[in-house]
Design a protein around this nucleic acid. Structure first.
Lengths: 324, 324
DNA sequence: TCAAAAGTGTTATCCTTACACCCATGT
DNA sequence: ACATGGGTGTAAGGATAACACTTTTGA
């Protein structure tokens, strides 16, 4: 009547060190930023992170305190992202300590003040250039060419066909781009040896120079997870406003949505969807014109959380892409 | 130029014991089941769980091995759910060991064979009765009455109004039921002292007998998290089929969807949505009739993963509820 | 007066919802 | 024959996507 092995009842203390790790995201001047920390000179940047301490009353408090210590950046919205704990996270390093990392997504309104620390904001598309389609599909298509080259090389014809199909499915062909599958694309690029971390982790030379900057450990994988989550979430929760200043124009809001989603949006319909969503209201005053008619200032209606369960910013149709 | 505190660079070994914990879900005879383990006689049931060991190459492998050891139930689909690590997870117990649990959602096709172990399948609505609207809104409305009583008692008139509004928002009024907010409802019930765990954790008497069964530790909270996730996910990924046998009728599929979502669905449109989704195809043979015309057997088309990025079962409109 | 950006109106199309109805089997 | 569940057709309504157009500013 009881097959539970004896060890199961009182768990033995399997000592494991646990890290808290943050993907802190902001939008500045229409470009999406991620907050990084330079732990060693001439090393790839890290995400802010630190060990979970017994004094941390909750995981989130521990995370906030590490980020503020390391970057002086106060956090706004925070949500748990994923827990990474596979033994080969950083490749077959001989490190016996299992590195368990609880990763968080954090959003801030004011992506401003690096300065005093070794932390800095970077455009996240420096790390994942193929995720940015706003200026055309060029970077994506160059990536697909490299991936198809990898898929076709080595292995049986059967395997090559499967790999090619997988590239097509993951990176999309033609208009079939799913902007949420960021992690799957990163992992395929990693597997294909087209990101610097793959080289580092397995000591094999990449197929030519990688088209992007690397990060420490598996932090770029964590970043990809965060971007995918955020792209999905702005569609059904009003998290986009967590990235905006208190007052903004609809164009600025659209620019932020475009930064996150990596695509251009159709202006007229975006405006209509936002205005009819009831998420925003007019604020007094106008934006100073930057080369055209001045725009109404808008603000988020904080009551929405009380009125409606779970609204998001309906993003609307894509803008017809300019000739790539 | 470098404010990072020295301790941040090489994380000190903050020894923390890490558990893996599984919400294993199956559907049997149109009712949704969760797999439990009885660790002690006359104690509330637990979810299968065990400590993460250094030998576990990945978290998921560790989880699978614990579940199979404790329940002999092989797992199918598995995904990470959430990591629970707040110090007061189980109330202010004096336990100094921080209990960090990485919880997983697992789906199985054959919710059959308990037998040999101390494990058992339970209808998950035994633990969260207000989440089941298939037979009317009775249980929900009884819960709302209790919650409103709690909201009105104690504190200022201002606080009472806020609590009442929160109950209305979380549990919905009239047709405004959001079936995904399972965790928020459980947490409000906990806060109101209407679940047994609240009593246990803070030693205060509940307002009358709780309307549901309890579970060990915070396992009912983890169950609520899993149900919310699953309810959301069947709408955009084909996970519903992970709960079905290889061949099934559309009615059985609908019954499963209803079990998960806790609501009745509109038959004709459910069928049409499923059939037009391309997720299923006809299988040879018919189901043995159970009181009407025999139904076509259907099967999931496994190729869909290769063709389309991320289809889900469009659930369609609710069935007009029978007079409650 | 022209470029640039803000902002409005309207229409075709598709998807969702709802309703009505027919079909095949066991008792 | 009739109850029960399986299965199909179609029309109304609403949301979306696409298009054309006007307004207000700075240079």
């Amino acid at each position: 009547m009881n097959d539970i092995p004896p060890e199961a009842a009182p768990p033995p203390a399997s000592a494991i060190s646990v890290d808290l790790c943050a993907v802190v995201i902001g939008v500045e001047a229409g470009s999406p930023r991620v907050l990084t920390v330079q732990r060693q000179p001439h090393e790839p940047p890290s995400l802010p992170a630190g060990p979970l301490h017994p004094e941390h009353r909750t995981l989130e408090r521990g995370l906030r305190s590490w980020v503020e210590q390391q970057t002086r950046q106060p956090l706004g919205y925070v949500e748990q992202l994923y827990t990474f704990g596979d033994l080969d996270r950083f490749g077959q390093s001989g490190d016996a300590r299992r590195p368990l990392s609880v990763a968080y997504l954090a959003l801030v309104r004011d992506a401003q003040p690096p300065g005093v620390t070794a932390s800095a904001w970077h455009d996240w598309y420096d790390y994942l250039p193929w995720e940015d389609q706003r200026a055309g599909r060029g970077a994506l298509e160059r990536m697909i060419v490299r991936l198809q080259a990898w898929a076709g090389a080595g292995g049986s014809a059967q395997e090559a066909r499967q790999r090619r199909e997988r590239v097509r499915m993951t990176f999309g062909d033609g208009a079939d781009w799913d902007n949420e599958r960021v992690l799957e694309r990163y992992e395929l690029a990693y597997e294909a040896g087209l990101v610097a971390e793959a080289l580092r982790d397995r000591g094999a030379p990449p197929d030519g120079l990688p088209p992007s900057f690397g990060m420490a450990l598996d932090h770029r994988r964590i970043l990809a997870t965060a971007i995918g989550r955020l792209r999905a979430k702005i569609k059904y929760r009003p998290v986009l406003f967590e990235l905006m200043p208190p007052e903004f124009t609809l164009s600025e809001l659209q620019r932020a949505a475009e930064s996150i989603s990596g695509t251009l949006l159709h202006k007229q319909n975006f405006r209509r969807l936002v205005e009819s969503s009831g998420l925003v209201e007019e604020a007094p005053g106008m934006a100073k014109a930057t080369g055209g008619r001045p725009a109404r200032l808008m603000r988020f209606r904080p009551e929405v959380g009380l009125e409606r369960p779970a609204p998001g910013v309906r993003i609307g149709p894509l803008r017809r892409p300019a000739a790539s």
